[in-house]
Design a protein around this nucleic acid. Structure first.
Length: 842
RNA sequence: GGGAGGAUAGCUCAGUGGUAGAGCGACGCCCUUACAAGGCGUGGGUCGGGGGUUCGACCCCCCCUCCUCCCACCA
């Protein structure tokens, strides 16, 4: 055996090991003739434009642990990798790049712009894939997919057409959420509400019109937080039973800026008599409540906004102004005309676009929708019947709540990057053609002038099909047959609605079967203060920096490039004055695994990563010790525990079993924190702190052989148990461990080089040696108290002390007497045991 | 307005109807040939507040206070 360095250097080993696994095809699943049970995870596809962040590192680690564990358990384990085209997110990024050249997408035109996005995708996507590899992800790269691959695009089109034919996709004119910056409609989910915004409730008066239509002295005072919307007012509503306004029923108001009669209507649904003046201005085209009111009273819907958020011609003298400028101007004019009636501070919530952050405007528009209720019902049942299990279970309630109150899903987007909507409109007649093949003419009037719908689909539409589109659907491929349904879907709780619920609905609808049997939800990775990582805050930790190390200057430069504010840079400087050491991938993985899956936040701390880096080193050194002791011995690991007589050996074999049981149970129950914790404590607190010390005297005595066997067996077994979590350091060590060559490798891998990645995961056999554990507890208790005495009396190690011990019962005395040599060696004391009863008797 | 989760050691968090745990930090000793990225030892919490159920509650029930998040159209 060659000399191993005292300190484990992860970065050198990791890349070579990954290459070894990949080149030898260890990640590939679905080999010909493989009849094993399958275990499949479809990766939550990262956005193609992003870089790998801690959230991805977390996903990757969890999924890789599950994949590797099942592979070692003898499953044909498949982890399907891939990426998402991420419609709006990607388009925004590329537009930003164009802006740096002083161009907009309109300068390029649609075709050239999309071309440009594809170029960017090639560049950016490659980086993500290499980052996943660097995390140790054991994905089957031969099955890598992209949501806009031709096959997956075909799946999207098939799904759209089928839903349309079934009446589940329709085109409708509704009040939708408009993002004036991205200039597209958004689904309800893409609108986030900003709470507790200090707003102003502005009150102004409409003059009541006389019989001749001219303003009288009488007025009706209304309030609004968006004064500019009054340009689209077509009514003012009062409560039918409000005595203050009975005399106004049926009358009209004079609009001060535009030539329009504003009706006074009675509506008990919209109006709360107690609130404000009890009179509500009604803007059907720009407010959801008002829209509904408008429908009830057949009011005119007047759109006052252009797509870019400026006022259109309906704005009269304010036309062309930006919406917020118009707000000020309208207020000022009302004030000038003497219609203003004061203003109050008002706490409100603001709807903002998830992507652009701009305030969302409700606008009337014709869009494509998916009718959700019929799809939601089976998805609710699937979870109720536990055909799909959601872990942690708390999330089930959230899932049910959303699905039971589900609204139709707006799936069209006014973007250029995405799946085109397969709908054509005939110029001659009103016909709409939705079809699998591009139509050549109108199937209604025979006209040849067809225009394809210019919109694209919401990026989540293709994501919803991911678990089966990646396997070849709608074709009946062998992969689809073999691997669908998948087993686990592991992702963040933040996309439970966006993605998970929709996959369940679409899987049930198109495949007739749920797409996965478990949903495993994890929390969000935050910085150590518990704050969300954001580029502006400068607190983003790049997983690769943690793995490979980075100087403070590196970190600052990167943060600055990403647009961190001065405060963010200061935080960085203060928190990481020395940058990051190269902790290695295993350390990062163990850290991420150590957080409870119930935690909604995982506050990542560098100290914790350091602790696991130290753990890897501890394991490394334990192995070094073992190798040293095994030199010249015939001992080798066989996968079967040796027959042993010595207490220490019996004890560690029993404790090993306990650790394996805990690790196995932990992984099965998706308590990776408990699984990793059990192995961590076994290795450090039991194997290293006690067993290795106990083995030292034993290795010099008559029981050296069984001790060597125990040592190598325990080490080799724990490496197998730990491998899914710390794949690199375990494989690196495993290569050096003397063992039976055939140990645990499945026939499928017989032709390949030996590798821990396909070794058998240790079995739970429940073999405990209670007697040895109890006896060992006595021994440990004694050794600890002897050490305490030594420490408290400041007795140097060199000095041997004599300890008289009064055994409380014969059993303890027996243990102490029997293991005298070991105890004396560990405690550094001479032991004199006296039997309590003997002492008591004369 | 509805819903969910949380409040445990200085910090970050696990946890169980029966005398409280981890990691990091603190304190003291130790360069003992596997490991100073280490070893050995020590200290530290009336488990947010109040009430109830129980032989017994940090854990179950009720109320209160304070955080976090999600959903929702109050002008």
């Amino acid at each position: 055996m060659t000399e191993l360095p005292k300190t484990y250097s992860p970065t050198e080993a990791e890349e070579a090991l990954y290459r070894f696994w990949e080149e030898n095809g260890f990640f590939a699943a679905g080999a010909e003739g493989d009849t094993r049970k399958t275990y499949t995870i479809a990766i939550p596809p990262p956005n193609v434009t992003g870089t790998l962040h801690m959230g991805h590192a977390c996903r990757t680690t969890f999924e890789d642990v599950l994949t590797r564990y099942h592979r070692m358990k003898g499953f044909d384990a498949l982890w399907i990798p891939g990426m998402d085209h991420a419609g709006i997110a990607t388009q925004v990024v590329v537009e930003r790049l164009l802006a740096q050249e002083g161009k907009t997408r309109h300068d390029l035109g649609r075709e050239a712009f999309v071309e440009r996005v594809w170029e960017w995708k090639e560049k950016s996507g490659g980086r993500i894939l290499s980052q996943l590899r660097r995390m140790g992800a054991s994905c089957d790269w031969s099955r890598e997919r992209f949501t806009m691959d031709p096959e997956l695009s075909k799946a999207v089109r098939e799904a759209f057409v089928r839903l349309y034919e079934e009446g589940l996709i329709y085109r409708g004119t509704r009040l939708v959420n408009w993002d004036v910056v991205s200039q597209t409609v958004l689904s309800d989910l893409e609108v986030e509400t900003q709470e507790n915004v200090q707003g102003t409730l502005f009150e102004f008066a409409y003059k009541v019109a006389g019989d001749d239509g001219a303003p009288t002295d009488e007025e009706l005072v209304v309030a609004t937080t968006r004064p500019e919307t009054m340009l689209g007012d077509t009514a003012v509503a009062v409560h039918p039973e409000d005595p203050r306004y009975t005399h106004l029923h049926g009358k009209f108001l004079v609009h001060p800026f535009v030539d329009r009669k504003v009706a006074i209507i009675c509506d008990s649904e919209l109006v709360d008599m107690e609130f404000g003046t009890g009179a509500v201005k009604v803007t059907p085209a720009h407010d959801p409540n008002d829209f509904a009111t408008g429908k009830r009273h057949d009011l005119e819907e007047i759109n006052i906004l252009n797509f870019d958020g400026t006022l259109n011609k309906e704005g009269g003298e304010f036309a062309g102004m930006e919406r917020f400028a118009a707000r000020k101007a309208v207020k000022a004019r009302l004030d000038e005309l003497g219609f203003a009636r004061g203003e109050k501070k008002h706490m409100m919530t603001l709807p903002r676009s998830q992507r652009s952050g701009s305030v969302v405007e409700p606008m009337i528009s014709t869009q494509w929708f998916v009718k959700m209720e019929p799809l939601a019902k089976p998805a609710i049942r699937a979870v109720e019947n536990e055909v799909v299990q959601i872990l942690p279970k708390d999330w089930e309630k959230t899932y049910f709540h959303w699905l039971r109150n589900i609204q139709d899903w707006c799936i069209s987007r006014q973007l250029w990057w995405g799946h085109p909507i397969p709908a054509w409109y005939c110029d001659n007649c009103e016909n709409v053609i939705v079809s699998r093949e591009d139509p050549t003419g109108c199937d209604n009037c025979g006209g040849g002038n067809l225009r394809q719908d210019p919109d694209v689909l919401d990026t989540w539409f293709s994501s919803a099909l991911w678990p089966f589109s990646t396997l070849g659907w709608p074709e009946e491929t062998p992969d689809l047959k073999r691997f669908y349904p998948t087993q686990d879907m592991e992702t963040g709780y933040d996309i439970l609605f966006f993605w998970v619920a929709r996959m369940i609905m679409m899987g049930l609808h198109f495949m007739g079967e749920v797409p996965f049997s478990r949903v495993l939800l994890a929390g969000l990775v935050t910085d150590e203060r518990g704050e969300k990582m954001s580029k502006v805050k400068g607190n983003v930790i790049d997983p690769l920096d943690v793995i490979e190390g980075a100087t403070l200057d590196d970190l600052l430069a990167k943060a600055q490039f990403n647009g961190a504010k001065p405060n963010g840079l200061k935080y960085l400087q203060k928190t990481y004055p020395d940058g990051f050491a190269s902790y290695g991938c295993d350390a990062l993985r163990m850290t991420l695994l150590s957080y409870s899956p119930q935690a909604r936040r995982m506050a990542l701390s560098l100290k914790r990563i350091e602790g696991y880096r130290n753990f890897a080193n501890k394991l490394w050194n334990a192995a070094r010790y073992a190798m040293m002791k095994l030199e010249g011995s015939n001992a080798k690991a066989t996968g079967e525990p040796p027959e042993v007589s010595q207490l220490a050996n019996r004890w560690i074999l029993s404790r090993l079993q306990v650790a394996i049981d805990a690790a196995t149970a932990g992984v099965e129950e998706y308590r990776l924190d408990e699984a990793s914790g059990a192995l961590y404590h076994f290795v450090w607190d039991e194997f290293c702190d006690w067993y290795l010390e106990l083995s030292k005297p034993l290795m010099d005595g008559p029981h050296a052989e069984e001790t060597a066997q125990t040592l190598v067996h325990t080490l080799e077994t724990v490496l197998r148990a730990l491998h899914p979590m710390m794949p690199f350091v375990t494989e690196e060590i495993w290569r050096q461990v003397p063992r039976d060559d055939a140990l645990g490798t499945h026939p499928v891998d017989a032709e390949k080089p030996r590798s821990l990645i396909v070794a058998r995961y240790p079995e739970q056999d429940g073999r405990r040696d209670e007697e040895a554990e109890q006896a060992m507890a006595v021994l440990q208790e004694f050794v600890v108290s002897a050490r305490t005495i030594r420490a408290e009396h400041d007795l140097p190690r060199a000095r041997t002390i004599e300890i008289h011990f009064l055994a409380e019962d014969a059993k303890r005395a027996f243990v102490l007497e029997g293991e005298k040599a070991l105890i004396e060696s560990l405690a550094g004391a001479t032991l004199v045991v006296s039997d309590a009863e003997k002492m008591a008797s004369p």
